[in-house]
Design a protein around this nucleic acid. Structure first.
Lengths: 220, 220
DNA sequence: TAGATTGTTAATCGATTAACAATC
DNA sequence: TAGATTGTTAATCGATTAACAATC
């Protein structure tokens, strides 16, 4: 059975966390109702898109009134966090990026539970990060057999990612939050991958800035 | 004159760094020619898209032969890095994320030049990061007047981002690499923004994983 | 020449936007 | 009721894919 995609398309999925953020802000401000047009104005999108998005997961608004903030929040939370079970997660790479990223995983607001960190640097092994122990990479197989992590976060260089991802998939990892410059999805089409290629992001910003300055004058 | 967008569309721009990476790998492997179909197979895309993309910036291939790797690399480098002038950049926020991110900016491969780091934490001010000094946020205005940074990297919490972005725009910043949970583009439509919302990225991965597990069985 | 591969146009696909009837 | 706003269908837009003539 080939991976059947739900009726919620990828662009909509990517927008869900943004809705979630804005609705949380509204709730914090004590707002209880919001119209698609006001939300759209705040978020820099269109009322059409907001309604289209909300309808695709059936969140009921009230015609003539708008949407109830708490209902929407509950609906979107259910989508993003399911039944509330946290996804058991391991982090590979305890360098600077791994250090920064570990706090996102262990924040109790994102739906993950950090089980352990792995690294090859002997100076780090045995220390703690974000409340869990840093293990030697050698212990990966034994650890996974016992704790069954579902998600792996890759904060290692390209070459290490190539080497470790094979083993992770073999050990049952179902999803990657991938910061390495290695494209996992080509090799493992059945694994869910979210890439964060910081270098790529920075380069494409550069393109857009230089393109703009060409129009305005050769300042850069 | 309203910001006229070039003929290179945003989806293509976002793919440029990926082409750049793959072509560098090919060059490192000593390959001098590549066909659109082979490149597409490696990258997990289609030959049509590769040719369509390459044609939109006029990179000449050779019919019957393919593309010369060095020509393509030169062409894409020119697009990504322009004439080679590095973009003068400041980093706001010297926390864990700022620390990790600073190395991306000061890598000489991305087209940026890190001028200084700013923070409000007195314990950090005066120290060094990625080879530059950490300044007090108070000094921002004076520093910008002298050094004219073009890009600001925001590694601060949402509330600080709200406060500091206004001043940065006023001081002439033209582009943001934005890690804060604050949507700059709504307020400053004329500024080029590249958002990296790590929390959003993590949440949408969670959605996709839970969606998948619903189809395969209620394991999570 | 024959085979391969590009450049480019046309067809398809999907996402966004617009419109409007339903209804609170 | 009148005004406002949703739910939903239709129209538009743009990006991706397919096709094929040009040509190395």
């Amino acid at each position: 059975m080939p991976a059947q995609t739900s009726k919620v398309s990828l662009p909509v999925i990517k927008r869900l966390p943004k809705y979630y953020r804005y609705l949380n802000n509204l709730a914090a401000d004590g707002r209880d109702k919001i119209s698609s047009s006001e939300l759209a104005r705040m978020m820099g999108t269109t009322a059409s898109q907001v309604r289209q998005d909300f309808n695709c997961f059936g969140g009921f608004g009230q015609q003539g009134i708008g949407y109830k903030v708490d209902v929407l929040l509950a609906e979107i939370s259910k989508l993003l966090f399911g039944s509330g079970n946290l996804l058991p997660t391991i982090l590979i790479g305890a360098g600077r990026l791994g250090t920064a990223v570990s706090s996102f995983i262990s924040r109790n607001t994102n739906g993950y539970r950090l089980l352990a960190v792995f690294d090859i640097n002997p100076a780090l092994i045995g220390q703690e990060m974000a409340g869990v122990k840093i293990h030697a990479l050698d212990e990966l197989e034994a650890f996974c057999a016992v704790h069954k992590p579902v998600v792996a976060v890759l904060c290692v260089p390209r070459q290490s990612a190539i080497e470790v991802s094979d083993e992770l998939v073999r050990l049952g990892i179902q999803g990657f939050w991938n910061f390495s410059h290695y494209d996992l999805s080509v090799k493992y089409p059945d694994v869910t991958v979210e890439n964060v290629h910081l270098g790529d992001s920075l380069m494409s910003l550069g393109y857009r800035l230089r393109e703009r300055s060409e129009q305005n004058g050769p300042e850069l």
